[in-house]
């Protein structure tokens, strides 16, 4: 029965396909094509809008609309007179953990990943092809598999070093692992668009290898490095599954906190919190997109 919902979608898809290829107008979107696309955009944004709207709902427990309020935002920003939902201390700790994790892991991953991207771009060495291929593993592998394999690694290493107890250091290592791959890929494809003659010219003018990197390669690659860093940062903030399996009791992040509260029953302050995170994420993505566009 649920499948009936898909019927209108199918009808629209057919219409789009049928009218979308009008002769000599291929570069102009037809009505059917536009309509389907607007629906698709609506579908993509529906969950986000619902969360944003519900964050202004004046009800503690129920999921239906009761009335307008901004008290959940006030609560998140420290108004202790608002009752219900999360504890302020928990929220503060989770926010701190999320940011600390994202900042430290991004810093490490940006340095190591950019160097890796440069090395792979510049030098062919035994294993360079294999490494270039390995970098795509974190891009495709389901999160849960990476999370589990790291969890088991930590379990083994814990016999040697207590450093690998579930908690912040373990989470940083896990995040850096997938971030490195993304940073290296972004930096490398930025480097691939550069004119190799620039680097050669610097060398011809007796710049040392280090000077060449510092004064020619780095400034040119900087938009790529920045874009890679922003991508890594957003990935870290966004991650739930890998953090979930490597975190300890004192290192809950915001996504883990949200998941735990959703499991207990959605509360409006979670909606408000999510809306704030959504807005911040979108600002971050906008910045990184602008940086990437400027590369062209």
């Amino acid at each position: 029965m649920f499948w009936l919902f898909f019927l209108p979608v199918m009808a629209l898809l057919f219409a789009a396909w049928h009218f979308g290829l009008r002769r000599n107008q291929v570069r102009k979107a037809s009505l059917g094509l536009s309509l389907t696309s607007y629906l698709a955009f609506g579908f993509l944004y529906a969950p986000i809008l619902v969360v944003a709207v519900m964050s202004f709902n004046n009800s503690r427990f129920r999921l239906e609309w009761v009335g307008f309020t901004t008290k959940w935002y006030a609560k998140i920003f420290g108004d202790e007179s608002v009752t219900g939902g999360l504890e302020g201390a928990q929220l503060l700790a989770a926010t701190q953990n999320t940011l600390v994790l994202a900042i430290i892991s991004t810093a490490i991953a940006t340095v190591i990943g950019s160097l890796l991207g440069y090395g792979l771009h510049r030098y062919r060495f035994p294993g360079s092809q294999l490494t270039a291929w390995l970098m795509y593993i974190p891009v495709v592998t389901p999160d849960i598999v990476m999370a589990i394999s790291l969890l088991l690694l930590y379990q083994v290493l814990r016999n040697v070093a207590p450093f690998f107890e579930p908690g912040m250091p373990a989470m940083v290592i896990a995040h850096v692992t997938f971030q490195i791959a993304f940073v290296a890929i972004v930096v490398r494809s930025r480097l691939a668009t550069l004119d190799p003659a620039l680097e050669e010219a610097a060398r011809d003018l007796y710049a040392s290898p280090l000077e060449t990197v510092r004064q020619v390669v780095l400034p040119l690659a900087l938009p790529g490095v920045m874009a890679g860093a922003l991508l890594a940062f957003t990935l870290s903030i966004d991650d739930f599954v890998i953090s979930f399996f490597t975190s300890g009791p004192d290192s809950q992040t915001l996504p883990i906190l949200i998941y735990a509260s959703v499991k207990r029953g959605i509360t409006p302050d979670i909606n408000a919190l999510s809306t704030i995170i959504v807005l911040l994420t979108m600002v971050g993505v906008f910045l990184s997109q602008i940086l990437q566009r400027n590369q062209k």
Binding site: I48, D238, P255, I258
Partner: peptide, 8 residues
Amino acid sequence: PSWVNLVI
């Protein structure tokens, strides 16, 4: 939207 947290 793909950057909005999956849980949310």
